[in-house]
Design a protein around this nucleic acid. Structure first.
Lengths: 227, 227
DNA sequence: TGCTAGCCTCTAGTATGCAACAAACGGTGG
DNA sequence: CCACCGTTTGTTGCATACTAGAGGCTAGCA
């Protein structure tokens, strides 16, 4: 547990604007167990700021669903239930399906090019058996879609969701499942094709199927790990 | 402009837990013009609390997208662009479509009964020509769907969205459009039927069509009113 | 020995003070 | 008359002091 060393109180550059992401990372890192208390004074001390900015950040994290503030008692790392994870994956499916549909409708040349390149890079990674190289490509794929959808509100909701899901920590496991990587690339390719064909409905459905499959893989990992 | 009277500093019951909704209502009420500054001290004075809780509430409203905080300058009522409204309606469509699909899958008896009753009440309101009685029924319809979907995360995202859209202020106008009320009731009835038939895909599509139609009506109002 | 009551220490919630910063205003010089 | 610069006023950002509630712990009693 490196809690006290790596999150060094690096001279507050701009005051405390960077405090929220640092605190979020701290919670997400898993250094803190669920239900572990996060004392405002302790955090303030640790980050070398006063309670005020810490409070603000914690309040924000509560909105994001990462911590729970029990009035007059304390702030605690939230225990994410399996039910919540299922619910979040259902939302993820809808969000990304929507992004695919919107991008198919717009058919923005830049993002289409990126998507194409991404799929080809994924194919190369697959043929090389490059497990470690794939997760970033997955991330870029979804990011390109979101960008191509060109809907800021969707983007905001999506990012909020993903912050809470800590999805990037799950995906590293799922790509190691036998055959999953190949299937994932196939699904990406299909989505990209349907978007290029401006088949919004098809792209949405394909994307949903992809997210659903990916979610199933991730959930199967959780079955083993949690509780 | 009743700004100073109706938002009376009603004895802070529990401190300032009720402050956020009151502040939100104040911003949404339209008493403040876009880009109008919201001074922390003034608001604190007005609500008979100190700056601290006001600050927290404003920060939350920024997350919700209702105000903009320019660092070291001030907090201002955000001007919602037409683009944002379009984006939010697109999101509303998928949220409510998702709710319909999930409810169809679960088929919860209580909510099905409520939905049925709601549709019948709407039909009565329609036959009576009761324009004023319909908006609450619309609200209940969507609320029942959301409840029947039984997905807390969806609910949270939906409520965030609707807070920002201030949808209930739009709908009162659209039901006055000739023929819209009848069509709206028809659409509700269709959605309810498809849900009862456990046709998730159908319910989702029907719901999307309904939201889309409703959005078009609302946007056509905005064309006349804004800018 | 077990239970209860009261205190004591912890927490968050709130108020306030102070400093830094931004912007508007007025005066002065060209 | 206009442009520029200093001052002044208003604002937020942060720190700190104070309040009050919650929960644990200990001591005293049955």
């Amino acid at each position: 547990m490196t809690r006290s060393t790596d999150e060094a109180p690096t001279a507050r550059a701009n005051g405390s604007a960077a405090l929220l992401p640092r605190l979020r990372e701290l919670v997400l890192s898993g250094d803190y167990q669920p239900d572990e208390p996060l004392s405002e004074v302790r955090l303030a001390d640790h980050f070398q700021v006063s309670r005020t900015p810490v409070r603000e950040a914690l309040k924000q994290l509560q909105v994001e669903g990462l911590v729970e503030i029990r009035p007059k008692v304390g702030t605690f790392v939230r225990r994410i239930t399996r039910r919540e994870i299922v619910e979040m994956f259902e939302l993820k499916e809808v969000f990304e399906g929507m992004a695919a549909r919107l991008m198919a409708r717009r058919s923005p040349t830049d993002e289409l090019t990126l998507l194409d390149a991404n799929v080809r890079a994924s194919e190369r990674a697959l043929s090389r058996g490059d497990i470690d190289g794939y997760p970033p490509l997955v991330h870029d794929f979804h990011e390109t879609l979101l960008c191509g959808a060109d809907n800021r509100k969707l983007e905001a909701h999506y990012r909020t969701l993903m912050n809470q899901l800590a999805y990037h920590r799950m995906i590293v496991n799922t790509v190691a499942h036998p055959g999953r990587l190949a299937r994932s690339v196939d699904e990406h390719r299909l989505v990209a094709e349907l978007i290029r064909e401006k088949d919004g409905v098809g792209a949405e459905l394909a994307m949903r199927a992809h997210v659903s499959a990916s979610a199933h893989e991730a959930m199967s990992d959780l079955l083993a790990l949690r509780d």
